[in-house]
Amino acid sequence: MTSSGELPINGNGDVVLVRQEVRAAALEAGLSLVDQTKIVTAASELARNALVYAGGGRVRIEIVRNGVRAGLRLTFSDDGPGIPDIEQALVDGWTTGNGLGLGLSGSRRLVDEFDLRSAPGEGTLITVTKWAR
């Protein structure tokens, strides 16, 4: 780990800020333009989910290393209601709101590593990583 920072997600403006900070970090990690675009899009989905379903949360942005490879890791956490059925939440089109149900499943496709931990009443923790090629 070479650098890290944490950002609050408490309003719509914060979702925009998260996208901008993730873009800057992705550039610093050496991700290609397409990979930058993918992880910024995933970050936008996960930040909005934290805001909409948990009333807010935070994201830690870290540049990580695996041998010679650099990558970008984002850890979203919130203290919201949690997700009762994680498998179901990851199905394309599943939504309890009025979205398209693509945020979680789509984000998983856009990154290299995706880890979701959640339980009812215990909030949600999602870690995603994208490695430079």
Binding site: V34, T37, K38, E45, L100, L102, G106, S107, R109, L110
Partner: peptide, 10 residues
């Protein structure tokens, strides 16, 4: 890059 990402997002 946006088009590629949109398709992968679904």
């Amino acid at each position: 890059a946006v088009a590629i990402t949109l398709v992968e997002l679904g």
